[in-house]
């Protein structure tokens, strides 16, 4: 009787532990082991079973090698999770020979909604480039100066950079050739 009970407990607890650990691994961005380029992780990578499972759950946002690559950032340059209540500066070089788009949404792929209707910048936009030909794009809850996207009402923050060139799929850019994300201001009480 006691051994049967022990067997049932082991089966139930083992199954629950296995399922819970699988759920945790797939949902915690700190455990995302997709290939990384600085603050960016390569979306759509099926390099291992965990990446394949994450990709299947995200369903969209991926590009084929003939289209280019999609890069996702959910953490800033200091490794802190992006917070839609904080203000960030996306600053650095962008590929000059490729169409690119930089989109602001939440971690489930929903776009930001704001009065300006601005949800993205692209290579077709006119930018205020700094002397080093680097873009400076602000992101935050309140409209700022220069090129800026308001995060209005997002519950989480994800920046997606899509580089539409098959060259980048076979030879991903060096992290130094991509912009970084720096936290500028944050309301009191926001997680560090």
């Amino acid at each position: 009787m006691l051994s049967t009970l022990r067997f049932i407990i082991v089966v139930i607890a083992g199954s629950l532990l296995g399922l819970a650990s699988a759920w945790w691994v797939l949902n915690d961005p700190r455990l995302d082991i997709s290939p990384r380029l600085g603050v960016w992780s390569v979306a759509g990578s099926e390099a291992n079973p965990y990446a394949a499972a994450r990709l299947a759950r995200s369903t969209a946002g991926r590009l084929t090698p003939s289209q280019g690559i999609a890069l996702i950032a959910e953490r800033d340059g200091d490794g802190a999770r992006l917070n839609p209540a904080c203000t960030y500066l996306i600053e650095g070089p962008m590929p000059v020979d490729a169409v690119w788009t930089l989109t602001i949404g939440n971690e489930r792929g929903r776009l930001t909604v704001n009065p300006a209707g601005r949800v993205a910048f692209t290579s077709a936009d006119s930018f205020r480039y700094d002397p080093g030909n680097r873009v400076q794009i602000g992101v935050g809850p309140e409209m700022g100066t220069g090129d800026f996207i308001v995060t209005g009402g997002l519950d989480s923050l994800r920046v997606t950079l899509r580089l539409y060139s098959p060259t980048f799929a076979s030879h991903p850019p060096d992290p130094a050739e991509l912009p970084t994300i720096t936290r500028r201001t944050c309301p009191a009480g926001a997680p560090a």
């Binding site: 082991v10 089966v11 607890a13 083992g14 199954s15 532990l17 296995g18 399922l19 650990s21 699988a22 691994v25 797939l26 079973p49 965990y50 394949a52 499972a53 990709l55 299947a56 759950r57 369903t59 969209a60």
Partner: peptide, 26 residues
């Protein structure tokens, strides 16, 4: 036994995710 079973369930669950995503948008 519990840890071995948890490991097997974990691996099987991860491998099955791509074939059993209930909310596949496509």
């Amino acid at each position: 036994a519990l840890l071995l079973l948890a490991g097997v369930v974990h691996i099987v669950a991860i491998l099955l995710v791509p074939f059993n995503v209930p909310f596949n948008a496509y």
